[in-house]
Design a protein around this nucleic acid. Structure first.
Lengths: 330, 330
DNA sequence: CTGTTAGCGCGTTCAC
DNA sequence: GTGAACGCGCTAACAG
């Protein structure tokens, strides 16, 4: 920076002002400074800048598992959004372990991130971590709520997703449904609740008790292999808690030579890459990751500008994507 | 840090030495310092440390598209590997555009990353960027080679993958193969070449000219719909350039009510999540992402320790994962 | 082994 | 509008 200042015949402070745009500088002089720094290939050292300004222009992103498509897409959306605002992403992934999550998150803190968005990997065991870091930096939780007061939460409105799907099914004359969701305190219960309410309100008919289980694809396959399909007592649509389970269901039905959606419709949840490559492609609830990312960044921006303010809880409405598994040729 | 020094009755330098472990300190004193800093909840400011040491403990990772499963898994593997070494990941994704890639990478440079691993998004148009950044920091390219001398390259040995797959097929009596790959200067040609050589050497029979095309799933579906299967002139295995194409092939064959692998086997390439959820599950070439990540990190470590040294080109051998689409029940 | 001091490269007070 | 000097928090070099 000294070199640039000398070559441009100005002081080092002027160079700083031109390059950071922190204060007005005479246009001709500014132009000259820019030329010289271009010429010398000079770039300011953001480390020094950050140290001085107490702001780094970096945001920490912590996800349970970076290799999972859902989180990968979220990171992508966040990264894109942050890039636009001139920020850089410091990424960490918990590898499914609260211990690693904690260590990673603290490391990001040590690097003085301006904000942190985290998908807590365990609703219970991540709680202390979120409480701690939220005392140092603005934190926004995504998806999972660990229940620390004063911390933002951005999630999708799971209940709305279920209602949307049931409405679609009702519209195409499928009211004899079976719900299959993965167990877990997280999103499953909200969906279950919404489903039960819909059944009580008569917007769908719960042919059987909802199936709770685990095992991803295997769960769906298993259910599909034993469910009674068609007729007065049978099911005409299997509503799955995520796309992977739905894939399993498709597989199980195929093994029985049942047609989808001819004999029975199948629906998923997430729409993060699996649904469109399934065969038949899956009608599914689309998780609005771009909107989630935008909302998270908006909250960080807000905190930066307005300081504190009360925490918010935003449940964003998902949309539904209709594909072959409910209205297809079969 | 001053506070800690005072409370522990030592100098600020001693605190630094204890916490960074840069020099031996008397054990009792060290213990006391650690206690005090724990007590005060003190954590050293890595920004200041980095500024002083000219090393940040961060590594930049640039991928074409963070939402793509292949790159997501790579980032995951890298992140894991780097976490172990105590490093943090600064992530950027190019969103498919060389311009954004360039801007992102330069930003990472401005943040003084210790090293950079990049999957160049365009073999031609990313060249200048790689040349530029490699003058400032140790760069390791992954997958795509932009052809700048002196820059490491870690990739998978595509030819070996094809040979492995053809050997497996031959072993189960499938020699009448058809190759279907996506066009592109990148990996496709290496596979094509390996295939042709195998055909000439009589290790497989190319029933027809290899199909080059684009469109992912649609490409595979289209080929499957028109290919002649079985008999003296037909195909008994479709070898696809990636799992998505293979998925399309499965779909196309299903539409014709042909059994996989009964009537014809299908194989993929990548094994990053799609192959195991396909139905039937896909026999595929496994891209060794963990090994690639480990190799990349090893190179960075090497550069850190040994300084320069000549650049390396490592083509890692893939493995083959046998699933239902070649040896299944059908 | 420990303390003192200088300075990493900037942004920001102040005076002018 | 511009320049000089201080300090962000830490580590490296030296002296003790």
């Amino acid at each position: 920076m000294r070199d640039v200042a000398e070559r441009a015949g100005v002081s080092i402070a002027t160079v700083s002002r031109v390059l950071s745009g922190s204060r007005p500088v005479r246009p001709d002089i500014a132009e000259r400074v820019r030329e010289v720094s271009e010429e010398l290939g000079y770039r300011r050292n953001l480390l020094a800048s950050s140290l001085r300004r107490q702001r780094t222009g970096t945001v920490g992103v912590v996800v349970p598992n970076a290799g999972d498509l859902r989180h990968a897409r979220l990171v992508q959306a966040l990264s894109q959004e942050l890039h636009q605002r001139g920020d850089t992403v410091l990424m960490a992934h918990a590898q499914g372990s609260p211990e690693i999550e904690e260590e990673s998150a603290l490391r990001l803190l040590d690097r003085s991130v301006d904000g942190l968005v985290i998908v807590p990997c365990d609703v219970l065991r991540s709680r202390g971590l979120v409480a701690t870091i939220s005392r140092h930096v603005h934190v926004v939780q995504v998806e999972n709520d660990v229940g620390v007061s004063g911390v933002d939460l951005i999630a999708v409105d799971e209940g709305a997703g279920v209602r949307l799907m049931l409405a679609h099914l009702a519209e195409i004359g499928r009211r004899r449904t079976l719900l299959v969701v993965e167990e877990g305190p997280e999103a499953g219960s909200a969906r279950l609740e919404a489903y039960r309410q819909a059944a009580e309100a008569g917007r769908t008919t719960a042919v059987d008790e909802p199936v709770l289980g685990s095992g991803g694809m295997a769960l769906g396959r298993e259910v599909a292999e034993r469910v009674t399909v068609g007729g007065d007592r049978g099911v005409d649509a299997i509503v799955c808690g995520d796309d992977l389970v739905a894939l399993g269901a498709l597989d199980g039905l195929r093994a029985r030579s049942l047609a989808v959606p001819g004999d029975v419709a199948v629906t998923g949840f997430d729409d993060v890459g699996l649904a469109e490559v399934a065969s038949p492609s899956l009608t599914t609830v689309h998780r609005p990751l771009a909107e989630i990312a935008a909302a998270a960044v908006e909250r960080l921006e807000h905190a930066r500008a307005a300081g504190g303010g009360p925490a918010v809880v935003w449940r964003l409405p998902p949309t539904i994507v209709v594909r072959e598994s409910t209205v297809g040729p079969d």
